[in-house]
């Protein structure tokens, strides 16, 4: 059997109350690659992303039909543990949202939630923190102030920290919802570089408003419009020779 796709949705529909936000979305996201989701505001790209770790359900008035599988396992259904789903699928939000705890405790937060073994020693925890912060290229800047509160970091550092805190629980899929839109150009560049270094070790699904970013920073690209998936191909092909005229219009800036 071939390596299962990282994410596969089938006939996925989603309603906010009576408003239908997603229509029959069938998308297969390849494992180990970076896939960007693009489309104009309100096209459903964030909704699709947020459905994949079911954070949409916080709203309480969301209904869905169809299925989503992550690495071959369905994530919706009575037998599914929501906690396990969210453990394996990390999420990075538009605005950096570190918890109002120390940098160290932010990195350890998810790990402590999911650690079922014996309580780790201080040294083991230090190791986890260092490794996660090194991976996101934040260690050198923060190693001397791990006990400081994370909300005092710059936005760029906060966003890197928000990525770092996902890593200790070893997720296989990272969902990023416009992770650079609150950052300045320098921060954007740094976080994009970081995303690129995570490529391969993690499957990354990236929602972006910025077509240049999609082009620079992703292997595959999916274009959505009005709640439907229009086109999904390798980024190069999609930008150079879009199949669907609507995709062409969008990437040329005729709307959106």
């Amino acid at each position: 059997m071939a390596d299962p796709a990282a994410v596969q949705t089938q006939a996925f529909n989603l309603w906010y109350g009576t408003f239908q936000a997603l229509y029959d979305v069938d998308i297969t996201v390849a494992a180990g690659r970076i896939t960007s989701l693009i489309g104009p505001s309100g096209c459903g790209k964030s909704t699709l992303l947020r459905s994949i770790n079911r954070i949409t359900e916080r709203l309480g008035y969301v209904r869905t039909t169809g299925s989503i599988e992550v690495y071959g396992h369905p994530i919706i259904g009575p037998a599914v543990s929501l906690v396990q789903v969210r453990k394996q699928i990390g999420m990075v939000f538009q605005r950096p949202n570190p918890l109002p705890l120390s940098i160290r405790e932010n990195v350890l937060f998810g790990w402590k939630l999911h650690n079922e073994g014996p309580k780790a020693t201080r040294a083991q925890e230090d190791e986890i923190v260092e490794q996660a912060l090194r991976t996101v290229l934040l260690w050198d800047e923060t190693k001397d102030r791990l006990a400081h509160t994370a909300t005092g970091l710059s936005l760029e550092q906060q966003q890197k920290l928000c990525i770092a805190r996902l890593l200790p629980v070893k997720p296989r899929l990272l969902l990023m919802d416009e992770p650079c839109s609150a950052l300045d150009p320098k921060g954007t560049e740094a976080v994009e570089e970081l995303i690129w270094t995570l490529r391969g070790a993690y499957t990354i699904l990236l929602v972006t408003h910025n077509m240049a970013q999609a082009r620079r920073a992703s292997d595959d690209c999916a274009f959505m419009l009005m709640g439907r998936l229009v086109e999904h191909r390798s980024t190069n092909e999609l930008f150079v020779a879009p199949e669907d005229p609507r995709t062409g219009d969008y990437i040329e800036g005729r709307y959106g």
């Binding site: 916080r58 789903v85 969210r86 949202n97 937060f109 939630l113 629980v169």
Partner: peptide, 25 residues
């Protein structure tokens, strides 16, 4: 609410979010 969302997205239950994030904050 961003704190609660962050906590829940990492797989914390409502009670864990309350105890570890909301009450300290």
């Amino acid at each position: 609410d961003a704190y609660r969302e962050a906590g829940e997205a990492m797989g914390a239950t409502r009670w864990q979010v309350t105890m570890r994030v909301v009450l300290p904050a």
